[in-house]
Design a protein around this nucleic acid. Structure first.
Lengths: 162, 162
DNA sequence: CTTTATCCGGATAATATATATCCGATTAAG
DNA sequence: CTTAATCGGATATATATTATCCGGATAAAG
């Protein structure tokens, strides 16, 4: 039960492109260099974010990726669902319908109690990710970081703009 | 991000072997037939449960698996951790230390805010699974099931005992 | 218009993990 | 001792994750 690395990568990247001036974007290659992650694969992950409406892309020269919404409107759950897809982690295969004492399908209107318990746990998990916005993450990071480091990132972002 | 099928299988199986008379066990082959799951693979999963102290095995003739604790003392989290292992789903690879603006390791005493947010979400997930005991699951199932089905299972378990 | 930089999508491959099987070693019951 | 059953390791297969490459589309800049 592992979360794809793309979730970690793209979340960090969202905190960086949030610092861009309005209307500007950063290229995948540039972002890949910033965190030393493989650019071709990162490109795939960013496409997933774009399809989910988290970021938007500008094609052609001086194009790149930027946020599609304000950092307040992007949650960690948005990013996880974009990368991992919507399917729940627990897969109920209805084995209660199998074997010598298997239930008939018509007797299985209610969800299996085990599946329901896992669904409930996943619900609280998702709720916890839903209240963490990109803005709140960046706020926490700003409080904890050294001022010069925030400066470094701001300057670096500026320098990447054509 | 998927939970291993073994979690579903062994949880269901725990609700069955909970019905055994004290001191008796059921063989893997018998349990595999009950839910129509592959017995050799189920055997591996039951070994994981045994190492985690959820079930215990009796070797030799008329041996098999039985619960190692009362259904009240077994939680869904116990089973998940036994099968999936203890490692968290979100893997922080510390990419904040990478690239042109990477932090020095000495500046990374606090956990990364992103990793912390996922750790918190996993904490509430685990807490939700921790309050679901085998006993509570069986209680819910007993309330929802038709009485004759509970009877069928009880009778089947009796018949499997030598 | 041409060049250049960039995203897009599909194909492909490598690696890791999950799923599944088999068999010899070991242990308990009769 | 013989038989039945589990354990543990070795191994095989399937699926998911990670990763790369390339041709095509798009758009800016010269």
């Amino acid at each position: 039960m592992q979360i794809a690395k793309g979730v970690e990568w793209t979340t960090h990247i969202c905190t960086v492109i949030a610092l861009l001036p309005p209307g500007r974007g950063l290229a995948v290659d540039v972002l890949a260099d910033f965190f030393e992650v493989p650019s071709a694969y990162l490109s795939k992950q960013m496409q997933l974010l774009r399809r989910a409406g988290v970021v938007e892309s500008v094609r052609g020269k001086s194009g790149g990726y930027r946020l599609a919404k304000t950092p307040d409107d992007i949650t960690l759950l948005d990013i996880v669902l974009a990368i991992e897809g919507p399917k729940p982690a627990f897969r109920c295969t209805e084995i209660r319908q199998n074997g010598p004492c298997g239930l008939k399908r018509t007797d299985c209107k209610r969800p299996c109690e085990i599946a329901a318990a896992f669904a409930e746990a996943e619900r609280v998990y998702r709720d916890a990710l839903k209240v963490k916005t990109l803005a709140s993450i960046m706020q926490e990071a700003a409080v904890n970081a050294k001022p010069e480091h925030l400066n470094d990132i701001g300057n670096w972002v500026q320098q990447q703009l054509p």
